[in-house]
């Protein structure tokens, strides 16, 4: 159980596995995979000290494509798996990946509570406003008028979910938006998110070229946020609500950081513990 010697710098490719992704050519998720491996290499984290946890979806396939410990779980439950792992093994760097369906629909409750719990996890959601894996149904972030799914031929008619607003309201200390079409900035956000000592939420616009081909135009509509990062949640809330949801950058970074929940390692014997039950005869 030993990592590489400190002088041996790791490259992004050292964090890639030789499993070939099942993703469609042109899928935004490729660039996210690449940005994650670059961020890990930049931080020179020993691969055996990193764990990548995911749910189910195209995006959730990511852990198997990396050379770090991975857990490809079930739909919507990546955050609880990562939470248990991080509490049990605070020494590990734990990243969580998934899609908008995985994180905001079936796993929506866990998203809120993970923000609130504020453990040192980095949550990367690849948002393509669609369920890719199940062949193109509407997700919580889908535009209300999107009529391309046979399941909702008249569109959902529902206002789309604003992940950054929810994360802020639920108490996340680090909220950023990135774009798979701008991997350099995305890598930078990932590095900052991993370094942030609390729950960091990185919302990544990651096009599904198969079920949302019009997202190829995101190249043109995505833009950098005009203001710098704020630590004031009221200002952040206003900006999140006013923005067109295409603005990238580190939106909010709280100053007060919650410490990792950790108990001083006591070592009381079980024999001692059992004495509470013994009666005096």
């Amino acid at each position: 159980m030993h990592g590489p010697p400190p002088e041996q710098l790791l490259k992004a490719k050292d964090y890639k596995s030789d499993v070939k992704p099942i993703w469609c050519a042109g899928c935004g998720h490729f660039a996210v995979l690449s940005a994650i491996t670059k961020a890990l290499a930049h931080l020179s984290l020993p691969p055996e000290q990193v764990a990548l946890v995911s749910g189910i979806g195209c995006s959730s396939r990511l852990p198997a494509y990396t050379h770090v410990y991975g857990f490809h779980g079930i739909h919507g439950r990546a955050l609880p798996i990562a939470t248990g792992l991080k509490v049990a093994r605070p020494d590990l760097t734990v990243l969580v990946t998934g899609g908008d369906g995985d994180g905001f629909s079936i796993g929506g409750n866990h998203f809120m509570h993970a923000c609130r719990r504020n453990l040192d996890l980095t949550y990367i959601v690849m948002d393509n406003e669609v369920y890719g894996m199940t062949k193109g149904q509407a997700s919580p972030t889908t535009d209300p008028g999107w009529e391309q799914s046979r399941l909702t031929p008249h569109g959902t008619g529902l206002p789309s979910f604003n992940p950054a607003a929810i994360a802020l309201a639920a108490g996340a200390g680090f909220i950023a938006r990135g774009f798979s079409g701008d991997p350099t900035s995305l890598t930078d956000l990932l590095i900052q998110g991993i370094q942030y000592p609390g729950f960091s939420f990185i919302h990544v616009l990651s096009p599904c070229v198969t079920y949302h081909p019009e997202q190829k135009a995101w190249k043109k509509t995505v833009h950098e946020q005009s203001q710098s990062t704020t630590a004031d949640p009221v200002v952040a809330a206003q900006r999140i609500q006013q923005s067109d949801r295409m603005a990238t950058g580190l939106i909010f970074k709280a100053i007060s950081q919650v410490q990792q929940q950790q108990h001083p390692s006591k070592n009381i014997s079980l024999e001692q513990i059992s004495r509470q039950f013994v009666t005096h005869t």
């Binding site: 764990a51 857990f71 919507g76 439950r77 609880p80 798996i81 248990g84 792992l85 509490v87 509570h113």
Partner: peptide, 13 residues
Amino acid sequence: LASINMIIGASFG
């Protein structure tokens, strides 16, 4: 749903 998956994560660790 969370509790069962949390213990799976911890046990994986």
